[in-house]
Amino acid sequence: MEWAELIGRVAAHGDRGAFKLLFEHFAPRVKGFLVKTGMSADAAEEIAQMTLLTVWRKAAQFDPASAGAAAWIFTIARNLRIDSARAAARRAKAAVNAERDETPEVALSPETMMSRSDDVSRVSAAIQQLSDEQSTVIRMSFIEEHPHGEIAERLGIPLGTVKSRIRLAMARLKDLLDD
């Protein structure tokens, strides 16, 4: 069973069995992902729960043609993490300034960012053209947020090579995606 299909069943008729499968697969991974990027286990648990709740509520907005299920769920978790950081900052400032702030979140969701399917297939094709080495350094540096020194150690390559590999990977991705 494809994850995208399960999200479709949640959207179409609130299929709780399908949702449970999504929960069992993705909730622990969202939590693990967040813990890995330095979040406390409690905070990660809360965001992972909210992420799955949002998957249920926004299932109808998921467009399998525009993003993979995992990428879509990543953006939900990312936006919730941003929201929670903003809320914390707002509470800290509200202690000083009682004025209430209603500024909405500006993080872009994939459904607003990517709508044209020709763009979507270009993105997938570009990623497939990256070498494993290139996608690994992008993932470690930007997504898992490891410092360059740590990446060098883990991959057993010099620091300078890490930096140049990241630079080349980003430039290649940009080249593949630019008009």
Partner: peptide
């Protein structure tokens, strides 16, 4: 937009 979407795709793979 495409560049950002590509990073989101890679992030989805990392989440997986």
């Amino acid at each position: 937009q495409r560049f950002i979407a590509a990073i989101e795709q890679l992030a989805g793979a990392a989440l997986e």
